[in-house]
Structures are given as structure tokens and as C-alpha cells.
Deep mutational scan, measured.
Amino acid sequence: PTIVLKVSPEELKALEKAGVEIEKIEKNEDGELYITLTPEALKKAGFE
């Protein structure tokens, strides 16, 4: 199962800087950012 999270541009930068593997980055028509994370990326980021 993949996880989709709504993030701010600042959060996205912080995640990328931390080396979190982001599978997909999407922006909706309201300009909101959503990222898709794999279970492996979540484990690496410390989420179980």
C-alpha cells in the first residue's frame, strides 16, 4: 500500500533534503501538493 500525503512546499523541500524517497508529486488545480510514498520510504523516514 502506498501513502498519499498533502504537504506544503516547505515540507516537500524538507522531505527531499532528508532524502525521503518520494514516488510521485502531484499538484491539484488549487495548487495543493500531494506526495505518494512507498512503504519502504516510510520505514526509512521512521514511520511504521
Rank of each mutant, 00 (worst) to 15 (best):
E48R: 01
L15T: 01
T2M: 15
I22G: 01
L12E: 00
L15S: 00
I3V: 14
E10T: 10
E21R: 04
S8C: 04
P1W: 09
E11Q: 15
E21D: 10
E48A: 11
K17I: 13
E40G: 02
E11K: 15
E23I: 13
Y34I: 08
T38R: 05
E48C: 09
I25C: 04
K6A: 06
K13C: 09
K17G: 09
V20D: 00
G31W: 03
K6F: 07
L12A: 04
I25E: 03
K43H: 13
P39A: 10
K27E: 12
L42I: 06
K13H: 14
G19C: 04
E21L: 06
L12F: 07
E48S: 10
P39D: 15
I35E: 00
L42T: 03
E29R: 11
A18F: 09
P39V: 11
K17R: 13
A41Q: 10
V7E: 00
G31N: 08
I22W: 08
I3C: 12
I22F: 09
V4L: 09
V7H: 00
E40F: 02
L33C: 06
I25T: 06
K13I: 11
A45R: 02
K24Q: 08
L37R: 00
P1E: 14
L5D: 00
A18T: 06
I25G: 01
F47A: 05
E26M: 07
T38S: 08
T36F: 10
P9W: 13
E21I: 06
K27P: 08
G19E: 10
G19V: 02
K44P: 05
E11C: 13
K24L: 12
E10Y: 08
A14Q: 11
D30C: 15
G31Y: 03
F47W: 14
K43F: 04
T38A: 04
A45T: 04
V7S: 02
A45K: 02
E26N: 08
K43N: 14
F47L: 14
L37K: 00
E40K: 02
K6W: 07
E10S: 12
P9T: 12
L5Q: 03
G46I: 04
L5I: 14
A14R: 15
N28A: 10
A41I: 01
P1T: 14
V4N: 05
K6H: 08
E23G: 06
E40M: 03
E26L: 10
K27A: 12
E21P: 08
L33E: 01
K6P: 03
K27R: 12
E48N: 09
P9Y: 13
K44V: 15
V7L: 05
L5E: 01
E26H: 08
A45C: 05
L5N: 01
E40I: 02
A14M: 10
E32I: 10
E40H: 03
K43T: 05
L15P: 00
L12V: 06
K17L: 13
K17H: 12
E40L: 03
T36M: 05
I25N: 01
I3N: 03
T36V: 07
E21G: 04
K17M: 14
L37C: 05
S8A: 07
T2Y: 14
E10I: 08
D30I: 15
P9K: 14
F47Q: 05
L12T: 01
T2F: 14
A18H: 09
E48P: 11
E23R: 06
G31Q: 04
K44R: 04
E32W: 12
A41T: 04
K6L: 09
E11L: 15
T38I: 03
E32Q: 13
V4R: 14
G46W: 07
K13T: 11
A45Q: 03
K44Y: 11
E11N: 06
N28R: 12
L5Y: 07
L33M: 06
I25W: 05
E10H: 10
P1L: 12
T36E: 08
G31F: 03
K27Y: 15
D30P: 04
L15G: 00
F47K: 04
K44N: 15
L33F: 11
A41H: 01
I35D: 00
P39F: 12
G46C: 10
Y34P: 00
G19W: 03
N28P: 03
I25M: 06
E40V: 02
K6M: 10
E16H: 13
L12H: 03
E11V: 15
E26T: 11
I22C: 03
I22A: 02
K43I: 13
K27C: 13
A18R: 09
V4F: 08
V20T: 05
V20W: 02
P39H: 14
T36L: 05
A41W: 04
E11S: 08
K43P: 02
Y34E: 10
E23S: 09
K17Y: 11
P9R: 12
K6S: 06
I22S: 01
E10M: 11
E26Y: 11
P1M: 12
A41K: 01
Y34W: 14
P9Q: 13
E16T: 10
E29M: 09
I25L: 08
V7I: 13
Y34L: 12
S8Y: 03
L33D: 01
L42P: 02
L12W: 06
L42F: 15
Y34R: 06
E21A: 07
L15N: 00
